[in-house]
Design a protein around this nucleic acid. Structure first.
Lengths: 157, 157
DNA sequence: TTCTGTTATATTGTACCCAACTTAATTAGG
DNA sequence: CCTAATTAAGTTGGGTACAATATAACAGAA
């Protein structure tokens, strides 16, 4: 019992880690129904919002690198949700676009956020707005803090 | 732009997801120095606290299943941090114990939490305590909520 | 005792996730 | 114009995660 800061029960990070996986477990049955994983789901969210995007733009928006994104897109293409084409103006760049099937999937996804909100926030609908705001602010603040620290780390090299 | 609830910028879950990975990125250089991954690190946290534990106890404490834990323990054993022995009283059960090397690693890990705290919370030390408490409460509350929802899901089958 | 069901771990297969490397296309400098 | 950086994706390899299955050991009932 030498080091209290090393106790699991005192670790914020373990809570984030456990929470993230519990959250994925909440999504899994819903997304299974759409034939998507969570990473594929947020890729589709981006495309439903922007209609298309390059691989680089997707990586940037979702904070994923090409080692994750390339095979993920290959699977989405195999399942018929997207198409990939290299730009004639710059053959290095690959543009990702929704197919008809991919665009239509949005309808089936509309109810997902509401269902997750009821797992994540309170069952009490009147409480949800308040909690949503509080969590959002705290997460944004923490995320900003982490990214600043990372920049400092990467400057120092 | 049909469904605001599907916009990435409105999604709490994407923030949790991004934050978790940003947090792992903060740990990576520190844990690299100890020769551990984050999953291995929390396994060692458990063992530094309890000295030993069965595979099942570790899975329970860290919310991981045997498909993750078994190969992870195999790697920790290979790197000389732990030993595994089946109990004579019940040959199904595997007891995991620290080796001398594993126990000594704790010294090198002592500074990790403080370093992470300065990335995760504010640089301002006087602010850290307040933020730590606020985050901890919010995470615990949300985690409890998610687990309740999961129980309800699993009852209904 | 033998059959049956349960329990504890391990294994297999699919999909992330990231570091490091490769490949091909573009750009910039001499 | 030609070579040397730079850039955009893709590939490879190690390590999670988890569902589904396998294996072996234990426990209880007939």
């Amino acid at each position: 019992m030498a080091y209290p800061q090393l106790l699991l029960s005192n670790q914020l990070c373990f809570r984030f880690y456990a929470l993230e996986r519990e959250l994925m477990a909440a999504y899994r049955p819903l997304l299974n129904h759409l034939g998507l994983t969570y990473a594929q789901y947020i890729t589709m969210l981006y495309l439903w919002e922007h209609e298309e995007g390059t691989v680089g733009e997707l990586c940037m928006a979702l904070s994923l690198d090409t080692g994750t994104m390339s095979p993920l897109l290959k699977r989405l293409e195999t399942s018929g949700m997207i198409e990939r084409h290299r730009l004639p103006s710059d053959e290095r760049t690959v543009m990702v676009q929704l197919t008809k099937k991919g665009r239509e999937l949005e309808q089936k996804a509309v109810s997902v956020p509401e269902h997750i909100a009821s797992c994540l926030l309170s069952d009490d609908k009147s409480e949800q707005g308040r909690k949503y705001q509080a969590l959002k602010e705290m997460l944004d603040e923490t995320l900003t803090q982490l990214k600043e620290s990372r920049n400092e780390r990467e400057q120092g090299r």
